[in-house]
């Protein structure tokens, strides 16, 4: 048991390597925020495409559903590996310059951007389904009232349905964001020096795993408050519902 303590809770090592692991965590945070924002936006786009009305737009709906099924059904790690492995060659094949195939935008290395792409594509699909449940949860009367007032489908979505839908699904969206943040660690497999990789580097050099524990603690510093925010949001909505004030 002492061995476990020594291997994982060497506070001296944690102190020594704190800056290095923190640098890794900063990568994690940046990747999380950029991918998270993009996924939230992309997810909404997908959700809206998925429920465009009318027979003529059936192919659009079909393609969107296929996309969502694909990225919900394939592990994120595979998506990371496939994008990272193929992107330079696909870009070359399409005649795109190397600055696209091996993106080094804003001083961030290419694994960062491959990771962003993979996370956005995948989590966009998850979030699209969350938005969808929000949209479908808005009572049908809302759309009817909006249409009866002369609003087009698009206007009704924009001003009436989507604002209500999004408000409803803030907890699951936040939960998805927390999951995304943890999943950024998968991008370590293509050598992005995020917090888990930083921990593993220290582990390989020192044969001690305390940097991993340190990484876990850094995660908790962010994810715990986020989880509490979600809980409070849910409780507040519950309270309103019980007092009979929430929307029918």
């Amino acid at each position: 048991m002492d061995v476990v303590f020594e291997q994982y809770f060497d506070f001296g090592l944690m102190r020594d390597e704190f800056g290095f692991v923190l640098d890794g965590f900063w990568q994690t945070v940046q990747l999380s925020i950029i991918s998270g924002v993009l996924a939230l936006a992309w997810g909404l786009v997908l959700a809206l495409l998925r429920q465009l009305p009318g027979r003529g737009l059936a192919p659009v709906r079909g393609l969107t559903i296929a996309y969502i099924d694909l990225f919900r059904g394939v592990p994120l790690l595979l998506v990371v590996l496939i994008i990272s492995g193929s992107f330079p060659f696909v870009a070359e094949g399409l005649g795109l310059p190397q600055s696209i195939g091996i993106p080094q935008w804003f001083g961030k290395p290419d694994p960062f951007w491959y990771g962003t792409m993979a996370l956005t594509l995948t989590y966009g699909a998850y979030m699209a389904e969350v938005y969808r449940s929000g949209i479908e949860g808005v009572p049908g009367g809302q759309m009817e009232a909006a249409r009866a007032l002369g609003m087009s489908h698009g206007r009704a979505m924009r001003h009436v349905i989507v604002p209500q839908a999004v408000r409803r699904v803030i907890p699951p969206l936040l939960n998805d964001f927390i999951a995304l943040m943890k999943d950024t660690s998968l991008v370590g497999v293509i050598a992005l020096l995020e917090v888990v990789e930083a921990g593993r580097t220290v582990q390989a050099e020192t044969l001690n795993s305390s940097a991993l524990t340190l990484g876990a603690l850094m995660f908790l510093v962010v994810t715990l408050p986020l989880a509490r925010i979600v809980d409070r949001y849910i409780a507040r909505e519950q309270g309103r519902f019980q007092r009979g004030l929430a929307t029918a």
């Binding site: 290395p109 694994p111 497999v189 293509i190 050598a191 020096l193 990789e197 580097t201």
Partner: peptide, 20 residues
């Protein structure tokens, strides 16, 4: 130099082939 550390040896070689 910027060092990029891969868990799998083969990934490092493949990254070189790809120009990463």
């Amino acid at each position: 130099a910027t060092v990029r550390s891969y868990g799998d040896l083969d990934d490092a070689f493949n990254a070189l082939v790809a120009g990463q």
